[in-house]
Design a binder for these strands. Structure first.
Lengths: 357, 357
DNA sequence: CTGTTAGCGCCTTCAT
DNA sequence: ATGAAGGCGCTAACAG
């Protein structure tokens, strides 16, 4: 590998000059700077990361930490999507992203025991998901390493945050059922309280119901899966048999509810309208196609990357809590006609993947 | 952060002694070694990664490279799962995993233009997926950086490889249709040739058919999605109307075929048996539940990690091509009775996730 | 067995 | 505007 020294010798200047030129530091004539930059480009010189890290005490690396169980093995690649967005924007500035999957044991032991975080290998930590405990996050933030949260938030902290507009999205979905389809008896299917995005979605539902002067009907179950969605629907219909519409806090529960409705011989959407949340790949392919709220997964990662980049470039930020807009995707489980047949390309990239911020 | 120097001062020994003790190098008495290790543990000392990298010229970091389009946005988190397995086993040895998502442009320009690979930030490259072009891989291997392929292979190269037993899996699935269900007219739905795993699966199908002295019936389509699965089924039934069973090279195509069969009023599995490949999360939840071949996704990553670890520890390996066993998951789309009702926990970790190698 | 010394590749004062 | 020299934290030769 080409060293700075060799590049300097080649040009007949000192290493200091080359370093200054390449790092946009003052003290080099425009002429020499041009020459140096050209030569570096030409010989495809790249500074050794270790040497640079040693002296600057910055690594140009960010750790993306996620609960091990939530990384790949969920219904939809939610966190991998965020990670990809993060990598995309950071890579453009020559930053790297290190994956760190956290076991329950890691979470209990705290960040102090994790080699990657202890060896000074990263400049910042992106903690993804609501199942990283606050004490872990606070401990990490206390180690003088910038921390940023995605799909999570901590009250009464200055820790930067990037989330989707969960309340807004769920409000939109609920309103759609009320305003467009005239439903008055709408129930919410949710998991147990405590997770930020889940709570936010419930809030959005309640807001919309109250604004329309309707009584909220909420059923909480242990988990937010297809199985619990089915169970929750049964509970709803026992408690409020006249329910005509369902808002589920995620697509898995919505699909579970739809399946259960079929077993109970209730037609969707004629007898029971259902809307979900997330817009996982399978939402469009369920029967009937699921009306849901799209979460801008990749954009969450991109935005987190931008926040970090700003931070690294000393853009002073007192506090930073970004919430990204969601989008109501109207298909037919709400009672609407699905106008254009959906393109069922489920393995290629989605069309909306580009970030138009 | 605690420095080696401070630890040495604290113990009243030289830095060299501490270094030797901590790195299991000879030249330290058992007694001092014990003391040093204890103190390091006690004060939770960890060597600075940059300093160590600078002198040892190794970074304890591995790059996981994937095509950007295949990272999160496919039907199932295949590559994220591999990455997680990789991270799991490497983290145990204090190695880190850097994500690198490759755009088409990156692939064209080659590894020489990628900062992460040029700055000496990694000791090895894991290239995932068949859509990283051979020339890219060869160029990377030529840069004196160890390269290992997962879910891909290159003929006539010594590049180590970890793949699933695609031919074996598809042979098993085909045999199941022949031996258990007595089918004689079985068609294969596949994508265009060229991708290693896809080709391997097709080979397995053909082997099983020939072994049973049956005529292969193969339909190739552009892509392997739900949409193309439907199209492929139509083609099959046009060419061979008496077809009674379908083998699809992945679950998406299988599900597409099942949906198309419903539209054509063919019952699955009574009129048409269908088996898939991959065992994506939704396979168990399709209607009818899909019989398929499970690919040990996380284990592929773990094994790749092991191969690298061996390599780093100077275990000399002339060549290394690992293929991991697949498992036929019998549900009901093949005509079997699905005995126990499936647990529909689709968002939690799967039960079989543990690696029992 | 242990300590001293030098240097990995780069950035950054300090001179010039 | 440029060059020389020192040091980031660690390991690896060399002495003792």
């Amino acid at each position: 590998m080409l060293r700075l020294r060799e590049l300097a010798d080649h040009l007949g200047v000192s290493t200091a000059t080359v370093s200054r030129a390449l790092n946009d530091k003052p003290g080099v004539s425009a002429e020499t700077r041009r020459k140096v930059v050209a030569a570096a480009q030409e010989m495809s010189y790249r500074p050794n990361a270790a040497a640079r890290a040693l002296i600057t005490a910055t690594t140009r690396t960010v750790v993306f930490a996620v609960h091990r169980h939530h990384f790949p093995l969920s219904v939809d690649p939610f966190y991998p999507g965020i990670m990809r967005g993060l990598e995309e924007t950071l890579a453009a500035e020559h930053y790297g992203v290190l994956l760190l999957t956290l076991s329950d044991e890691d979470l209990r032991a705290g960040p102090g025991t994790l080699p990657v975080l202890q060896e000074g290998r990263a400049d910042a930590l992106v903690a993804a998901g609501p199942d990283i405990p606050p004490q872990f996050i606070l401990a990490a933030a206390g180690r003088s390493m910038p921390v940023i949260l995605v799909d999570n938030a901590l009250r009464e902290t200055a820790i930067p945050t990037v989330t989707a507009d969960d309340p807004g999205g769920c409000r939109d979905a609920t309103r759609h059922l009320i305003d467009i389809h005239g439903h008055r008896s709408i129930a919410l299917l949710r998991g147990t309280p405590g997770w930020v995005s889940s709570d936010g979605r419930a809030d959005g539902y309640c807001d919309a119901m109250k604004a329309a002067e309707l009584e909220p009907r909420v059923v909480s179950v242990e988990d937010t899966t297809i199985a619990t969605g089915a169970v929750a629907l049964i509970e709803v219909l026992e408690a409020w048999p006249d329910t005509t519409a369902i808002v589920a806090v995620n697509d898995a529960m919505a699909i579970g509810a739809i399946r259960q409705a079929a077993k109970l011989s209730r037609r969707v959407p004629e007898d029971l309208a259902v809307v979900g949340f997330d817009d996982i790949s399978w939402a469009a392919l369920s029967d009937p196609p699921l009306t849901t709220v799209r979460v801008p997964i990749v954009q969450i990662g991109r935005r987190a990357g931008r926040v970090l980049l700003d931070h690294f470039e000393d853009v002073i930020t007192v506090s930073s809590r970004t919430t990204l807009a969601t989008e109501l995707i109207v298909r037919s489980s709400c009672g609407c006609d699905e106008s254009p047949a959906p393109v069922m390309n489920s393995s290629g990239p989605r069309r909306h993947e580009t970030d138009h911020e």
